[in-house]
Each structure stands twice: as C-alpha cells, then as structure tokens.
C-alpha cells in the first residue's frame, strides 16, 4: 500500500548546520498494516511524516501509494490518498466554521470543489451518524462553531474527519501528545476502533511507549534518520517497555533520549 524506498532528506546541506534527517529509509506497509513509530529526539519521525504527506520533498528516493508514484506531487494533490491528524488539536479543524461545515470539507478530501452546496440534508444525516460513533455528543451540535469545542473534542473531530472517507493511508503525528491523560486515552481508544473498523493502513508516531506496543500490528524504532528496529506482529505481542528501552540502548549505544517520552 505504502512503499518508501531509499528516501533521504538533508537540512541545510553543505553548511555547518547540515543535518541528516533521513538516510536511505526503506519502509513497506501492506494494506491494513497499523505501524507505530517511536524514536529519540531528531530521529526523523516527523520528517518521515512530512515526506509522505508532501509537506517536504525527499532529496533522494521514492514514495509510492497504492502503486502511484507520488514523490513529486504537492501536498494538496496527495490528500486523495492520505488522511492526516496533527499533534496540535487546533491544526486539524477550522475554528470559525461549524462542525458540519468542517465535516463537509473533509468529505470532499481530494475531490474537486464546485459550486454545489457543501452541507445538504442528506449529508447532514450522514454526518450525524458518523459523529455518533465518537460517543461524545457532537452529533447534537452540528451547527456549533468548532472553536467552542475543547481540545479533546476537536481532536476527536479531526480524527473522524481524517478517517471517515477511508483514505488509503492514515498518518497520525503524535495526535494524543497535546492532550491530558484522560482525553489522550479516549482518542487512543477511538483511533484503535476506527482504524480496525475501516481497516485503514496507518502510520502512527507516538511518544508513549506503552501505546506504541499496545496499538497496531507492527512497531518501528528510528534513530538518527534510520529505522533501527522493526518489530513484527508476533514479537510485538510479547514486547515490554523495558525490553524496548534495552533494545534501543544495545543497537544505538545510548539511552533513549526524548524530552516528552511517556513510558506508559
């Protein structure tokens, strides 16, 4: 489904500040794979997400989704394949517009936008039904401005907006990191159920080690722009946080350093 081959990305090449963000990354996701990504500061996790979503272009290598080579496509053209949730709960929704208007915009992901009405009665019924899956009462607040919602509610809405049109690839970029523990847990549970229900091929960056082990069928660990560990489904079932930390130290020769790491 997602095929990344020999992707490299440098920042400030040729200067004293040169930094290797990604070097020779190969990653292949099968349809329905749910891969969690962990790694230390500056490991290249965010750069990898940005390369896949088209915010940045790789200096070398290729990105393919479902057989289409998309390496050089701009971000807005890739959204046909990609649904995305950002870390910042404010980033995924338009605050001055209503819940139903936000859903209507997400409904047209990757499709031409014309002069037809964005919210029709038929679509409204569909939005209501979809919102009720979140189980937080948003289905009764279709006309409310999104700016009035709490961070957790906004992130739940972002998650629904990114997934309910069944993208080929779902990118989750630390999407629970900015929430308090209770709400982060709610969003995590929602993520798990939505991804499973719709069998979405998913790549999720997280700082929560326990979450990385618990969710998904595969775990990769990154360091200094490389994938240093790739744990398959069977091994992942028996994995513990302690083992994971130990493994990191053995491979990279240092302790896992991350300001925001959550051991779980």
């Amino acid at each position: 489904m997602l095929n990344i081959s020999k992707v490299s990305k440098l920042f400030n090449p040729g200067t004293v500040d040169e930094k290797t963000a990604l070097i020779g990354i190969n990653l292949h996701l099968k349809p329905g794979d749910f891969v969690t990504v962990i790694g230390s500061n500056g490991a290249g996790k965010s750069t990898l997400m940005n390369i896949i979503s088209g915010v940045m272009r790789p200096d070398a290598g290729n990105v393919e989704i479902a057989g289409d080579k998309i390496t050089l496509l701009p971000e807005y053209k890739r959204s046909k394949w990609i649904g995305r949730v950002f870390q910042d709960p404010m980033a995924g929704t338009a605050p001055r517009m209503t819940i139903e208007e936000n859903l209507a915009m997400a409904y047209k992901r990757g499709k031409p936008r014309t002069l037809l009405l964005g919210v029709t009665p038929a679509k409204r019924a569909f939005f209501k039904e979809q919102l009720s899956r979140l189980g937080i009462g948003l289905e009764n607040r279709l006309g409310a401005k999104v700016g009035l919602l709490s961070g957790g509610e906004r992130q739940a809405l972002s998650l629904l907006m990114a997934t309910y049109t069944k993208p080929q690839i779902l990118l989750l970029d630390e999407h629970t990191a900015a929430l308090d523990p209770a709400r982060a847990e709610l969003i995590t549970a929602l993520t798990d159920s939505l991804v499973h229900e719709m069998k979405l091929t998913t790549l999720m960056v997280t700082h929560n080690m326990e979450q990385a082990i618990r969710l998904g069928n595969r775990l990769i660990m990154m360091d200094k722009g490389r994938i240093i560990l790739d744990v398959n489904e069977q091994r992942k079932k028996e994995l513990t946080v302690a083992q994971l930390l130990n493994e990191f130290e053995q491979i990279s020769g240092k302790k896992l350093a991350d300001d925001r790491i959550v051991l779980g």
Partner: peptide, 25 residues
C-alpha cells in the same frame, strides 16, 4: 456555503487544515 466557498473560508481560517484535505489554497 458551496464546497468551493467552504474551502475559501477555511483558507482564511486554517490554511494548513484545508490544504491537508486537498484544496489548492
């Protein structure tokens, strides 16, 4: 209130978001 109009409004409201949903802002 059309699809195009919504993406116009979102361009001023949250450009990053509407671009991630495929609008050429």
């Amino acid at each position: 209130h059309t699809d195009l109009g919504l993406s116009l409004r979102a361009t001023g409201d949250n450009e990053r978001m509407i671009r991630s949903f495929g609008s050429n802002t």
